[in-house]
Amino acid sequence: MSDPSKLSARYTTLVVAAISLIVLTCVAFIVPVPYVELRPGPVRDTLSTVKGGQPMFTFGAKVKTYPTTGSLYFTTVRVPPPDAKMSLAAALTAYVQSDHAVIPKDLIYPENETAEQSDAESAAQMTGSQDSSRVAALRAAGYKITGRPSVVQVVKGGAAFGKLVVGDVFLDVDGKKVSNPDQVVKAVGTHKPGEAVRLTVERRKKPVNVSIVTRADPKDKSVPRVGISIGVTYDGPDVNNNVGTDVGGPSAGTMFALAIYDKLTPGSLTGGKKVAGTGEITPDGTVAPIGGIRQKMAGAAKAQVTIFLVPAANCAEAADGDDHGLKLVKISNLKGAISSLEALAKNPDAKVPSCS
């Protein structure tokens, strides 16, 4: 005959274990963890059309372009918005999927960043990427492109507010010609806070004279400020990027540049092949590393791509795992990417820099 006290103890243990399991399960599915999941995103062919049937790239009337074949895809990563919550269970599920990644949230979004702030930053990065890719491609195609210092932001309520506008190109400061942002900053810095600085800017192709009384930097009262951010405006033929506003960030730059170059030069850069890739690009053609390389490779593979261009600094990560049957081509600059694609267009077995 069973001992009632032992049965009671066993029953109590089972109940406690069941309750503990229920609590832990609730914690796993409800309590958020400070991580985000990266997933493969869609790919877009830069040599194709966008919504409405318009080509992704259109060129000025005086720009000579050539027909081409094949595809040059830029790749994307799906990232949840900054206010999204991720449970421990979701994090564990994503972690075991080879084409997904789970990373600390603060690596993607600064603390307390809103969705609106994140979208604005991403859009600004895309705008910069479009401009850099245009300049790099035009230079690679043989165009001589020069840059001039210009206003890229005017601080609301600042000394220059109402006097300078975004897009103004600096011609001279205090009567001295300037040709780069450093010269503008240095010339303004010769003044004491409260002194006026005389500027001549080009606005709508006409010179405009402006006098601005400098203000002290809030962190260093000896430093004069006019309340603007300075960048570079590049000349050259008109190249319009029609990708739209549904994609952000800087990582499509290299593929943008390759597409522009392909249209500006005779023949097909891809030899009719499906090529994808990624990488931020600078105006001088340098390719910089990006995030989410594994997810971008997976997205490209779904589009039946055969060649994938990988920034050199991302090669180790790209080669660490399933290559999805992709030929991983290592690139450090636009010139190298062009050379590799030209070689592979002629001979699929050509020796080119590789991640493997």
Rank of each mutant, 00 (worst) to 15 (best):
D220V: 02
A216D: 01
D220C: 02
V210F: 08
K219P: 00
I228M: 07
N209E: 14
P224R: 05
A216N: 07
D235P: 06
G231C: 02
I212M: 14
R204E: 13
I228E: 02
G227Y: 10
N209H: 12
E202K: 15
E202P: 06
D235C: 04
V210D: 08
V210N: 10
N209Q: 14
N209F: 09
I212F: 14
K205I: 11
V210L: 12
V226C: 06
V201N: 11
P218Q: 05
D235E: 03
S222R: 11
I212E: 13
T214W: 13
G227L: 08
V226R: 04
P207V: 13
R204T: 10
V213T: 15
T233M: 06
P224Y: 07
D217R: 00
T200N: 13
K206R: 13
I212A: 12
S222T: 10
V201F: 12
D220S: 06
K219E: 02
S211W: 14
T233K: 07
V226G: 04
A216C: 08
N209G: 09
R215S: 09
V232I: 07
T233H: 03
P224F: 09
K219S: 03
D217N: 06
T200P: 03
T214G: 03
T200G: 09
E202Y: 12
N209K: 14
D217V: 02
I230F: 05
K206F: 08
R225G: 01
K205Y: 12
T214Y: 13
R215Y: 09
R215H: 11
R225C: 04
D220Y: 05
R225K: 11
V208E: 06
K221A: 05
N209W: 07
K219R: 10
S229H: 02
T214P: 08
R204W: 07
I228D: 03
R215K: 15
P207Y: 09
P207D: 11
P218T: 00
I230M: 07
